[in-house]
Structure formats: C-alpha cells, structure tokens
C-alpha cells in the first residue's frame, strides 16, 4: 500500500491523550514530604504578607523610647521590641510584604529575559552566541552587589529602581545557565531529527528545546530568590532601596545590628526570617529538580 493514504483501519481506537509532562511533575513533587513542607512554609509566608494588617497585633510604626530593645517574651511584645521600641512581631509580619516583593519580583522577570537571551545564543550559536555571551560576560565581571549598587545609584534611589537593578544583575547568570544547557541539548540527535523533518528554528525551540532546558534554568532561578532578598536588604542599608521606617527584613537586620550585644536574639530575628524563606525556596527548587526528571 502507499503510505500517502492515511490508514483508517478499524484496529485504530482513539487513545486518550497520555497525562502531560507537567501533571507528572506535580504528582511526583506532591509525594515529596520535604518539598511539600517547604511549599507549606512559602504559602504561609505569602499569606502572612497578604493578611499582615489583620494578623499583626500592633502598629509596626508606633515607637516608644521607654520600650526599646525589650527581650523576647515581654508581655505585649511576644518577640520583643526593636531599637525604637516598635513591636518586633508586627514588624516581622509587615516586613514579609516588602521582603517577598523584593525577593520574588526580579527573579521571574530576569528568568524570562535571561532564558530568552541564553536559549537564542545556545541554539543559534556562532556569531550570535559570541555577541550575546561576551556582552553578558562584561556584566558578569562585576561582583553582583557592586553592580546592583552602581545600577541603583545611576537610576536613583527608590523601590522600583532597586527592583530594576536587581533584575538586571540576575540576567547574566540566568542567561549563562540557559546558554550552556541549550548548547548541550542542541547537539543531541533529536534536534537534528527535528531539523531533518523540515521544522523551523522557532518550532524546534518551542517543542524540543524549551521542555528540556527550562527545568534546570528554573531550578537555578529559584535559588536566586534568597540572593535577591539579601541584595535588596543591602541596597536598603545603603539607602538605595526601602527607606526607614518601612519594615523590611534586610533593613531591620541592618538597623538592629547595633543592638547585637544587648539583645542578640531580637537582633537575629529578621535574619532568621530571611533564612527560613531562602531555605524554603531552595528546598522546593531541589524537590522540583528531582520531580522534573522523567526517569524518577
């Protein structure tokens, strides 16, 4: 017979579409207790930020010089008071808003731009690759904090400019990871097979490259959430990001550092919050990395 005609023999029964790749990832990650704990922590932090005004027991801006640096457990101040006598618990709850904003906003934007640049460089190769990657190397040569400070300084102080500069700082490393993973995938035979079937570059990237490179880039980018929060607090400390008296964990950590000998536990609280958030994101990213492996 000629294969030009599509056979419609009665043997053929319409087969239900196999469950997609991502539903498999969700199923596997939901069976990972460690990743689920991390996800629970992240959801709790987000809920805390959203409902801060109804959860917080006191006004985070109300200061009283007489109540300065109360220890943890003081009646009315379950987590003590800061150097201006403001309720630590309320400030930590409100601080989640800005800290999560600073931590979470730059990463997805940098993820999209960095992936686009890196995948283009990796797939096209040649001169395009050299042009994109060498430009990125120039940015990569600066230490990230220095670059963020320089960009923030150039753009001017303010929350938006701080977010923009952190985003710009994250694009080069994400693009690098994207480029190296794409170069690896590009050399595999299934890409050649797709090219041999006459598909264009855009279709090949969409169908064959993205699914195989986004996983590792995504995992890498998730790890940047904590770096982003720390960078943001650094910018706040230098007066380039969040300004006092706004509650933000990085800023709180910096202003409380003078009290480290008087009330070390209180002074360490904002750091503990940053630590918990970072760990939660890193553990979730690790769980996703495992779940994204089809063979597991």
């Amino acid at each position: 017979m000629s294969i030009l005609q599509v056979s419609t023999s009665p043997v053929l029964t319409p087969i239900a579409r196999s469950p997609g790749y991502w539903s498999g990832v969700v199923r596997r990650v939901s069976r990972d207790p460690v990743a689920m704990t991390a996800l629970f922590v992240i959801v709790a932090l987000i809920l805390m930020a959203v409902f801060a005004s109804s959860i917080a027991p006191a006004d985070p801006f109300k200061s009283a010089m007489l109540r300065r640096l109360k220890p943890i457990g003081t009646p009315g101040f379950p987590l003590g008071a800061d150097e201006l006598g403001r309720d630590m618990l309320s400030r930590l709850i409100y601080g989640a808003r800005l800290s999560l904003l600073m931590g979470l906003t730059p990463v997805p934007i940098a993820f999209i731009i960095g992936s686009a640049l890196g995948i283009t460089a990796g797939y096209v190769g040649g001169l395009t690759n050299t042009l994109i990657m060498r430009t990125i190397d120039v940015f990569y040569a600066f230490p990230s904090v220095l670059l963020a400070v320089a960009l923030s300084g150039a753009l001017g102080a303010g929350l938006t400019n701080a977010l923009v500069s952190i985003t710009l700082v994250f694009i080069p490393p994400i693009a690098r990871v994207a480029e190296s993973v794409t170069t690896q995938v590009r050399s595999l035979d299934y890409i050649d097979a797709a090219r041999a079937s006459g598909a264009g570059a855009f279709t090949i990237i969409r169908v064959h490259v993205l699914g195989n490179v986004l996983g590792p880039i995504f995992v890498y980018a998730t790890g940047l959430v904590s770096v982003s929060m720390i960078l943001a607090s650094g910018l706040s400390f230098l007066g380039l990001g969040v300004r006092p008296p706004e509650p933000e964990w990085g800023l709180m950590l910096n202003t409380l550092r003078t009290a480290i000998y008087n009330q070390p536990l209180v002074a360490a609280l904002p750091g503990a919050m940053i630590f918990i958030t970072s760990i939660a994101f890193n553990v979730l990213a690790d769980g996703l990395r495992t779940a994204m492996d089809v063979k597991s």
Partner: peptide, 29 residues
C-alpha cells in the same frame, strides 16, 4: 529524505511521548 540515527535514546526527545515524537514531522508539514 529521512534519517535514522545510531543513538536511539538521543534521537528521541525525552519529554515527548512516542506518539508526539512521530506526529511532529507530519504536523510541521
């Protein structure tokens, strides 16, 4: 003109089902 490669694993996209790998070419055309 089509080609079959030596490495049977590397020549199939690990993220696509068998069916999706086979239908890719005809769908392109």
């Amino acid at each position: 003109v089509q080609m079959v490669f030596q490495d049977s694993y590397a020549s199939l996209n690990p993220r696509l089902t068998i069916e999706d790998s086979i239908t890719f070419g005809p769908r392109i055309h």
